[in-house]
Amino acid sequence: MNNSKRIFLFAVFAAFLFSCQAGKYKLPVENLEILTSSGASVFVKAEIARKDAERTYGFMNRKNIPDGTGMLFVFETDQILSFWMKNTPHPLSIAYIDSSGVIQAIFDMTPYSLAPVKSPRSVRYALEVPQGWFEKTGVKPGDRILLNRP
């Protein structure tokens, strides 16, 4: 193989890796269990965003977010939360979760939209997953996420 082909293949490979890389921050990952009203357990492998900068960046610029994965946004106090999809190309669904782990609401969000998606009441957490994942797995408002937090 000549040098120009090697350089081209390397460039294609590097672009592929860059497009698939995780987010800007190296976040810890936890396997979260969701107990559904039907009694089933559903698991999601979630990156945990605790700091303001991590929460603000979220899934921005991620082109591929596989089913069964997500991001849990952890806040210090209960509050009305508002999320948008600025610079986020992958369609997402968001669950707003109270401090006891109960899902209060689930909304779908549109890629790149600047429209705020607000929680209907004060909550402590938000979980973003690929759009439609909650519906596919039977997760609904009222279901409980088991959280290892005070």
Results as ranks from 00 to 15, higher is better:
Lys5Asn: 08
Arg6Ile: 12
Ile7Pro: 01
Ile7Gly: 00
Ile7Arg: 03
Leu9His: 03
Ala11Thr: 13
Ala14Met: 12
Ala15Lys: 12
Phe16Lys: 08
Leu17Phe: 12
Leu17Arg: 06
Phe18Trp: 13
Phe18His: 09
Cys20Trp: 05
Lys24Cys: 03
Tyr25Cys: 03
Tyr25Arg: 12
Leu27Cys: 09
Glu33Phe: 02
Leu35Trp: 00
Leu35Tyr: 01
Ser38Val: 03
Val42Asp: 00
Val42His: 02
Val44Glu: 03
Lys45Phe: 00
Ile48Lys: 03
Ala49Leu: 01
Arg50Ile: 01
Lys51Gly: 00
Thr56Tyr: 03
Tyr57Ala: 09
Gly58Glu: 12
Met60Ala: 13
Asn61Trp: 01
Lys63Ala: 02
Pro66Leu: 10
Gly68Gln: 13
Gly70Asn: 06
Met71Pro: 09
Met71Leu: 10
Leu72Met: 13
Phe73Asn: 07
Phe73Val: 03
Val74Pro: 04
Glu76Gln: 15
Glu76Cys: 07
Gln79Ser: 12
Ile80Trp: 04
Leu81Ser: 08
Leu81Tyr: 07
Lys86Val: 04
Lys86Asp: 05
Asn87Glu: 13
Thr88His: 09
Thr88Leu: 04
Pro89Tyr: 05
His90Val: 15
Ile94Phe: 08
Ala95Trp: 10
Ala95Met: 09
Tyr96Trp: 10
Asp98Pro: 06
Ser99Thr: 09
Ser99Cys: 08
Gly101Trp: 01
Val102Gly: 06
Ile103Ala: 14
Gln104Glu: 11
Ala105Lys: 12
Ala105Asp: 15
Phe107Gly: 07
Asp108Pro: 14
Asp108Ala: 15
Ala115Asp: 15
Ala115Asn: 13
Val123Gln: 05
Val123Ile: 06
Arg124Ile: 14
Ala126Trp: 14
Val129Phe: 05
Val129Glu: 06
Gln131Gly: 08
Gly132Asn: 13
Gly132Ile: 07
Gly132Leu: 10
Trp133Gln: 11
Glu135Tyr: 13
Gly138Asp: 11
Asp143Arg: 09
Ile145Leu: 14
Leu147Ala: 04
Pro150Gly: 09
